[in-house]
Design a binder for these strands. Structure first.
Length: 153
DNA sequence: GCCAACGTTGGC
DNA sequence: GCCAACGTTGGC
């Protein structure tokens, strides 16, 4: 199943992903998003990489799920931002997967272009008030986005 | 910087 | 288990 993952480019952009081998997708606090990583993501799944809180926001590239889910180490870091006192090594509360870089679009597809597109405007990320940082994407939307970006995988 | 939308927390 | 208060996200 294809996905859409959001990241603030000031924090971690598609270019940052390009520079690293694999990136653990840590720090996701929303339960629904965690469950997607824990239950539903499979190694090899592709994801649209979305830049949020950017000027302009939009899809900047493609990433791939590069690991099976494993406990998010940041939940055990006592003084870390994502420390969860209720999590134990035996019973972690948060799982994550690694992502690897697949493609960087020559030009970002701005959110406005997604909204203007008959097909892509159905995507969750286009809905008003959509805050979920990981969402499933229909195959037809994924394909359409690649086409708009002029990317062939 | 504003604010609408949404998720989470905690008192009851 | 309800719901008001609060915090966060994220587009504009």
């Amino acid at each position: 199943m294809p996905w859409l993952i959001k990241s603030e480019p000031d924090v971690f952009s598609i270019h940052d992903l390009e520079k690293v081998d694999q990136e653990p997708w840590s720090g996701v606090r929303n339960y629904q998003a965690r469950n997607f990583m824990w239950r539903d993501m499979k190694v090899g799944d592709l994801a649209l990489f979305y830049h949020s809180n950017a000027k302009p926001p939009g899809i900047s590239g493609v990433a791939k799920v590069a690991s099976a889910p494993y406990p998010d180490p940041t939940q055990f870091e006592k003084n870390g931002e994502y420390f969860d006192p209720k999590a134990t090594e035996q019973k972690p509360r948060c799982y994550l997967v690694d992502f690897e870089h697949i493609a960087t679009f020559a030009e970002l597809i701005p959110l406005q272009a997604l909204k203007d597109d008959e097909i892509l405007s159905e995507m969750t990320v286009c809905q008003k008030g959509s805050r979920l940082s990981i969402t499933p994407v229909l195959k037809k939307h994924f394909t359409r986005a690649l086409k708009l970006a002029g990317v062939k995988l």
